[in-house]
Design a protein around this nucleic acid. Structure first.
Ligand SMILES: NC(=O)c1ccc[n+]([C@@H]2O[C@H](COP(=O)([O-])OP(=O)(O)OC[C@H]3O[C@@H](n4cnc5c(N)ncnc54)[C@H](O)[C@@H]3O)[C@@H](O)[C@H]2O)c1
Ligand SMILES: NC(=O)c1ccc[n+]([C@@H]2O[C@H](COP(=O)([O-])OP(=O)(O)OC[C@H]3O[C@@H](n4cnc5c(N)ncnc54)[C@H](O)[C@@H]3O)[C@@H](O)[C@H]2O)c1
Lengths: 212, 212
DNA sequence: TCCATTTTGTTATTCATTTAACAGTGCAAA
DNA sequence: TTTGCACTGTTAAATGAATAACAAAATGGA
């Protein structure tokens, strides 16, 4: 099974591929058609070896003299990480962070669209944000199934995280990005990614302190 | 040198310690005074072994029958990751994300305070957010030195990231948390942590797609 | 008193990721 | 032609992190 191959790509490589694509766009906009591994590396402040290794894993070969064809590479990365028919995302919790994410993300990616927001506060229902409608959470299952949403971003208050993620999973969400400081649990067939901003800030603070 | 020890603690352990502290608070608020490794593990959805291993690394010993003393542990984690005199943070870019972070973070941590914001847009200067004043970036060096700020969070537009981080470093910032999609470079004596939200979303989308 | 149970602390092992080493190749210049 | 250079692609080694394995200690009950 060909797809199996992709399963063996390290998580970190997937993250970098997403960043390579952005970096390539910058070079492409400058009118360049080809790029060397060390140029990609410089843009991301990583090593050229790592770039080549990542590209090896996705089976792309560059030209020895001209490096990589930017268009080809952008397309190949797209083939790998994008879903051809596109994927839809829902935001749970239309507060400060939820709104910031919508304003920031919407329109950035062709194949990835925020298709709905959910909240418990009726004040949020009236107006849309960057073209995204806000629905009451009670309608989550209905809206998510109707629109075929499979990805959910969790930005409710921490004490609502468990209950909300339960609703998300129930409604058919298969990937959760949790920005809440509360770790949540999902079934095995749901992919979970958590990011704790306070930990990040404290981590930076710790290493600043230690270096003194 | 005793401090050397702490240098060998894995980065991931530092992140978890920050999360342990939050979890411990929850148990403490319930009136509990002691906790077992498997209880901490359950709150964070990790294994008890990992909790014990992390605590071993910071040199804390629990009681065989009663587990860990919550107060002692909270204090020890504080001794390790907090700076006794406190640390100050500056936000560069008082846009949607910068404001969300201030509203969210300010007041959450005793030893970590957002002490200033910086922006180029004069409209931002007039009013403060959650007690945080916004200054023009030209004043960054002055304000940062005066207040003794050592940590900076970068939330300017991507194309301003390089120039802004240069200003930060110049002004004496020793730890940077970059939320911009543009990777930045800092001197060796500055600690850098980058987080790319789009990569995270694309990563979730990728694994959702692959699991089908 | 002694044994079974529970939980800790630590060492050993496995797994994941990065970095290093190097062979191979195409081109340009001698 | 041949040599040197600047790349790529791949295998090998090193580092970092999670998991497994297990000895040791404290308690309660047989
Ligand atoms: N603001 C930040 O910069 C930031 C950073 C990191 C993490 N976070 C976390 O993200 C979450 C949201 O932060 P925020 O600053 O946007 O808070 P917020 O209070 O502005 O927004 C929370 C939103 O969730 C809604 N809500 C409450 N209960 C809900 C439920 N059960 N179902 C659906 N919606 C519900 C509220 O009505 C509100 O609109 C919090 O958990 C916070 O800890 C925020
Ligand atoms: N909003 C989000 O959810 C989100 C998520 C992830 C990453 N980001 C990134 O964070 C950054 C900010 O996002 P945002 O949504 O808050 O954008 P924004 O446009 O709302 O805010 C940017 C702010 O930076 C200020 N600014 C511009 N140039 C500056 C300079 N040279 N020095 C200081 N301040 C300057 C602007 O005046 C503005 O207030 C962007 O790089 C974005 O890609 C945003």
């Amino acid at each position: 099974m060909e797809d199996r191959l992709y399963k063996n790509i390290p998580h970190k490589t997937i993250e970098r591929l997403s960043q390579y694509r952005r970096a390539l766009q910058i070079y492409s906009d400058k009118g360049k058609t080809n790029i060397f591994s060390h140029e990609i590396a410089a843009l991301l402040h990583i090593t050229a070896v790592q770039v080549r290794r990542d590209l090896m894993l996705i089976g792309y070969s560059g030209s020895l003299r001209k490096g990589y064809d930017i268009n080809d590479l952008v397309m190949l990365i797209g083939d790998l990480i994008d879903s051809p028919e596109g994927q839809k995302v829902a935001i749970f919790g239309m507060g400060d962070l939820g709104r910031a994410i919508i304003n920031y993300f919407q329109g950035k990616r062709d194949k990835l669209k925020i298709a709905a927001g959910f909240d418990t506060n009726p004040e949020k229902f009236s107006h849309e944000i960057a073209g995204v409608n806000c629905y009451p959470v009670e309608k989550a299952a209905e809206v998510i199934k109707e629109k075929g949403i499979k990805i959910g971003i969790l930005t409710v208050p921490g004490d609502q995280a468990d209950e909300t993620v339960r609703i998300m999973v129930e409604a058919g969400i298969k990937g959760v990005l949790n920005y809440t400081p509360t770790p949540v649990e999902v079934p095995d067939d749901v992919y979970l990614e958590e990011y704790n901003m306070i930990s990040s800030i404290e981590k930076v603070a710790f290493y600043v302190k230690e270096r003194k």
